[in-house]
């Protein structure tokens, strides 16, 4: 119930912020929503893993980076459009994710949380340094015609392609909700997240479910890796900030709260865009999310003390 209230608050704050900003500085709304979509689409799979497997995957953004590199080389070698690489990248990354899960994370499920954090942090470093060694730190980019499509409304002119991430994030959240609440496997996953022992008692293979959920999350982030090529250049460290932002968004939303991630992403995206809209504040844009997190955690602890 606490989660429902928090979602409602986050969504309401997001809407209020959006309305205020839309009237005052429309570009902030546009760019803010575009990055919100990207943030949410990347954070949702991390939230899925945290909510069900109860692992904070600090290599989350690095999985996306690895998938982006694989897609990049596949696309440049074959001349394929990154959009066509989305599904293959999802499938391959799911396999890779399952392998990594079986070899490492699975063995740490019963370890103290600190050990789990060190493990996934180690994976993150291994991935980014591995890519660095193999392919150098050079930035790589695929030029695409359609991503520069822009729309002009009155005096306003902006790129429309990044809105695709808003749809992807919405589809991901809605699809996962349907999966978790309507299918037998999804319900089993939800049950495992809420009570693994109870799940085993009713015949659910908990270990297999963890593997499945981890593979599903890495599939989503793998697809995002290919899609990411349409938005940005890549380099070995490109995933790191997304790990941090995803973690913060998931923490703001609360464990297992996927709609809350959408709300938190809108709040973060709009705040950043707002800071960027002012020349003097531009440098602060990357810090704003730390401020938001501290505000949320502070608010929560004050509320906790009251009750």
């Amino acid at each position: 119930m606490a989660i429902k209230r928090r979602t409602a608050i986050l969504v309401a704050l997001g809407i209020v912020a959006a309305v205020v900003v839309a009237l005052w500085k429309p570009t902030v709304l546009i760019y803010g929503m575009q990055s919100a979509g990207l943030y949410a689409a990347i954070a949702i799979p991390m939230g899925l893993v945290l909510g069900i497997v109860h692992i904070v995957n600090l290599a989350h953004g690095e999985f996306m980076m690895v998938a982006a590199y694989a897609s990049y080389f596949a696309c440049t070698a074959s001349g394929m459009d990154p959009l066509l690489a989305v599904l293959p990248a999802a499938a391959v990354t799911a396999g890779f994710g399952l392998l990594v899960y079986k070899l490492t994370i699975r063995r740490a499920l019963k370890s103290p949380e600190l050990n789990q954090l060190i493990l996934t942090f180690g994976l993150a470093i291994t991935f980014s340094q591995g890519v660095n060694l193999l392919f150098s730190s050079q930035t790589r980019k695929i030029s695409l015609e359609y991503v520069s499509a822009s729309l002009t409304i009155g005096e306003l002119s902006f790129g429309v392609w990044p809105f695709v991430f808003v749809f992807v994030a919405g589809a991901m959240a809605y699809g996962l909700k349907l999966f978790l609440t309507r299918t037998t496997t999804g319900k089993a996953a939800l049950a495992v997240g809420q009570n693994p022992r109870g799940a085993a008692i009713v015949g659910i293979d908990v270990d297999r479910t963890y593997g499945l959920v981890f593979a599903l999350a890495t599939a989503l982030i793998g697809g995002m890796g290919a899609l990411f090529l349409t938005r940005s250049a890549i380099f070995p460290g490109v995933g790191g900030p997304f790990t941090m932002k995803s973690f913060s968004l998931v923490a703001m939303a609360g464990i297992g709260n996927i709609p809350g991630i959408l709300g938190a992403s809108v709040l973060l995206g709009l705040s950043e865009a707002l800071m960027r809209a002012f020349r003097g504040l531009r440098g602060w844009a990357d810090i704003i999310f730390f401020v938001l997190i501290m505000a949320v955690i502070l608010g929560r602890s004050i509320k906790g003390r009251k009750s």
Binding site: Q194, N195, I201, G256
Partner: peptide, 12 residues
């Protein structure tokens, strides 16, 4: 099994 601690899925 009906466990002593019930072991239900509280959020479902």
């Amino acid at each position: 099994l009906v466990p002593q601690e019930r072991e239900l899925f509280p959020g479902m």
